[in-house]
Deep mutational scan, measured.
Amino acid sequence: RELEKFANEFKVRRIKLGYTQTNVGEALAAVHGSEFSQTTICRFENLQLSFKNACKLKAILSKWLEEAE
């Protein structure tokens, strides 16, 4: 439930900031050390990743959002 809420909020905030899914994937290299594909970001936003992978990505995306805003 919390993950679903974060995924929805993330998408809204990403769009408000003017980032595409591809931009986010590339920008994550600075935060995490490796890029993520547009497909991975899309699957996260649509809750199509495994729970374990989504939880890992949530932590990375939270950190990125803090820096982007």
Rank of each mutant, 00 (worst) to 15 (best):
R1S: 10
R1T: 08
R1P: 11
R1D: 11
L3E: 04
L3S: 02
E4Y: 05
K5Y: 10
F6A: 04
F6N: 01
F6L: 02
F6W: 09
A7M: 06
N8S: 14
N8L: 14
E9Q: 11
F10H: 03
F10D: 04
F10L: 04
F10S: 06
K11I: 07
V12E: 15
V12F: 09
R13S: 01
R13N: 05
R13A: 11
R13G: 04
R14D: 04
R14E: 00
R14S: 00
I15Q: 14
I15E: 13
I15K: 13
I15W: 01
L17N: 04
G18R: 02
G18I: 04
Y19E: 01
T20L: 04
T20S: 13
T20P: 00
T20I: 00
Q21F: 01
T22R: 15
T22P: 06
N23G: 14
N23Q: 15
N23T: 11
N23I: 06
G25L: 04
G25F: 09
G25D: 05
G25I: 11
E26V: 07
L28G: 04
A29C: 08
A29K: 10
A30V: 07
A30D: 07
A30K: 13
A30T: 10
A30R: 14
V31K: 15
V31D: 07
G33N: 06
G33P: 08
G33A: 06
G33D: 04
G33K: 02
S34C: 07
S34M: 11
S34T: 11
S34N: 14
E35P: 08
E35W: 10
T39K: 14
T39C: 00
T39G: 12
T40F: 01
T40V: 09
C42I: 06
C42H: 13
C42W: 12
R43N: 12
R43I: 01
F44K: 00
F44N: 00
F44R: 01
F44C: 01
F44H: 06
F44D: 02
E45T: 02
N46Y: 04
N46M: 07
N46L: 07
L47F: 06
L47G: 15
Q48P: 07
L49M: 14
L49I: 10
L49R: 02
S50M: 03
S50I: 08
S50V: 01
F51P: 11
K52N: 13
K52S: 13
K52D: 14
N53G: 12
N53S: 14
N53F: 15
A54R: 00
C55V: 15
L57T: 10
L57M: 15
L57F: 12
K58E: 03
K58P: 04
K58R: 11
A59K: 14
I60P: 10
L61W: 00
L61F: 06
S62Q: 14
S62H: 12
S62F: 13
K63L: 09
K63D: 14
W64Q: 05
W64D: 05
W64N: 07
E67S: 12
E67Y: 08
A68W: 00
E69H: 02
